[in-house]
């Protein structure tokens, strides 16, 4: 009976790979924030922010991120003055004033990044019905789960980078459609986008954003940097989480050891 159960389990595991996955799984990258001691590379996510600001923010909102977040610990490491400067370069819609009118004013630390479009319908009108997704949680809103049994290994390996792996693959995954496939001018072929036909034209080009720290200004580098930035955007407390996690684990192991010895001592009398 037990053997039957075991054979059954193996059959299920192999069945999963038999069902065809038409979508290529994003290859795994190495990220500085991966693993139990992962941290953000401050210079990298600063560069990523520049890519967002200079390229992506024309179409993509980031409404859950405030300018003050740029200066908070565990982030890109802007000073409060620098974050204030960034804020002041944006116009924020505010009001009504005493006359009852809405008005634009320079951004403050407490403001959130403004959306490039006033509402969803306006955005869709701009892009032939497609809505550029908001970036606030996108690094956690993407990524495919590897089938069983790899998913068990991922739990042990602490793989939580499915989103960044996908975003990086997508940004570097534009290509020509296969022979015989023609796309309308509003669609572009991407090797990793589900269904392959994405509404965004390739957004990055070499030399598009200026880097002041000597990092190569290639599309691949932009993709990597903006992806790391988006991971911080989605999980701003990642470093604190892993740091506190380590402290908690050590504490629990010590406490567990003491509890085990206590239990052994309590029960020793009985035998």
């Amino acid at each position: 009976m037990r053997k039957t159960a075991l054979i059954l389990a193996c059959a299920l595991a192999t069945a999963s790979s038999a069902v065809a996955e038409e979508q290529a799984l994003a290859p795994r990258q190495s990220w500085s924030f991966a693993g139990p001691f992962g941290t953000f590379d401050r210079a990298q996510i600063q560069r990523g922010f520049h890519v967002y600001r200079d390229v992506c923010s024309a179409c993509h909102a980031m409404k859950h991120v405030a300018f003050r977040n740029l200066a908070q610990p565990g982030g890109p490491g802007f000073s409060e003055a620098q974050a204030k400067q960034v804020a002041s370069e944006y116009r924020i819609n505010d009001g009504p004033n005493d006359k009852g009118e809405m008005f634009d004013r320079p951004g403050r630390l407490s403001d959130f990044f403004p959306s490039p479009d006033p509402n969803e319908q306006a955005a869709r009108a701009r892009f032939n019905g497609a809505l550029p997704p908001d970036f606030s949680e996108i690094a956690k809103a993407r990524g495919a789960e590897a089938g069983f049994p790899w998913v068990v290994f991922d739990a042990v390996r602490q793989y939580q980078e499915g989103g960044p792996d996908y975003i990086y693959a997508y940004l570097t995954g534009y290509g020509d459609p296969p022979a015989g496939v023609t796309l309308p001018p509003t669609q572009f072929w991407n090797n990793y986008f589900p269904g392959h036909r994405t509404a965004m034209r390739p957004p990055l080009q070499n030399g598009q954003v200026e880097y002041t720290d000597g990092t190569p200004t290639t599309t691949e580098q932009y993709s990597r940097d903006v992806t790391a930035f988006l991971m911080w955007v989605a999980e701003p407390h990642l470093e604190a989480r892993k740091r506190i996690g380590f402290q908690v684990m050590i504490f629990l192991i010590v406490f567990g050891g003491l509890a085990y010895l206590s239990k052994k001592k309590v029960w020793a009398d009985l035998h």
Partner: peptide, 11 residues
């Protein structure tokens, strides 16, 4: 602390 979205919160 290490895989908070693994079980409960899918993308």
């Amino acid at each position: 602390f290490y895989i908070p979205n693994f079980l409960g919160i899918p993308p």
